[in-house]
Design a protein around this nucleic acid. Structure first.
Lengths: 147, 147
DNA sequence: TCGCTTTACATGTATATACATGTAAAAGGA
DNA sequence: TCCTTTTACATGTATATACATGTAAAGCGA
């Protein structure tokens, strides 16, 4: 029962389809990561922290294109779980975030599981399409950034 | 300062990149939809309701690949805003969701704005890449569904 | 028809996310 | 140095999202 035929255009909404895929794919990865006791988004944060070494909140905001308040709150969670600590930097406005030993272990364990999920996803898509998808996501982001 | 070189693999995480793009693109559309006073995700729901006509919660769950509880809560919000009503169906377990007149108007108004956002996005990507992106998102979803 | 199973929602709880705004520290100019 | 502006975070509030679980109605077999 289509009431307004032109509304069918919205089936091709880039945003809605991205969100839909996001929900499905996030759950897929989350299930695989479950045994490590870490959420998908938390894992991304932890790995990013591990790679940067001692990022500030702003560093993470830039790396993940997340709102600063979102990063702050996520870090609080990670602190509550004992996976990271934060200290005031030389610039006393900043907070330097560091993985704890426990956080290090969680990342190491989750990394193996992540590789599984990623492997399944990439082989399901095919390497070429996986690459192409990442490219297009990047391109979509750049469209939003240049206003 | 890379601590564990193998962790750089996670830069290619399909899930993380999807989420990142999702955040950026959702904000892009949301800004355009702002004048209509409707959130991006709410717009998607409203349009879907408009097109199906009188969906149940389950119909919406299937159409949007959302968790049932997420749909239930979103519908509550739409009801609070006076954009939809729900009634018990013939099968008394179901709830039939219908747009109110006010909801109809909001959709109509937001649809125009959505077309703008979508137009900018598609022209930014190029029609071919936009199509390809939707295809790949669909493919990614299908990979998650066949477990 | 009775009782068990399944289905369709609703609720409690927790994380993810962002906007508006507040606070403190750094930066810069007079 | 003092004052204004900018920067880096934190907090209040609201929506988005899902898992575990609860409840009521429908389906179904004996």
């Amino acid at each position: 029962m289509i009431q307004k035929p032109e509304y069918t255009q919205t089936w091709f909404c880039i945003s809605a389809n991205l969100r839909k895929a996001c929900r499905a794919v996030t759950q897929f990865y989350s299930e695989v990561l479950l045994p490590a006791g870490v959420e998908k988004t938390q894992f991304t944060l932890l790995v990013t922290i591990s790679m940067i070494g001692q990022p500030t909140i702003t560093d993470l905001t830039d790396a993940l294109l997340m709102d600063q308040t979102t990063v702050t709150r996520s870090i609080h969670l990670l602190k509550a779980k004992g996976w990271v600590t934060s200290a005031v930097g030389t610039d006393k406005r900043t907070r330097l975030v560091t993985l704890t030993e426990s956080g290090d272990q969680v990342v190491a364990e989750a990394f193996g599981l992540w590789q599984e999920a990623q492997g399944q996803m990439v082989s399901g898509l095919g390497q070429a399409d996986a690459d192409r998808l990442l490219e297009l996501l990047e391109k979509a982001i750049s469209v939003t950034q240049r206003g």
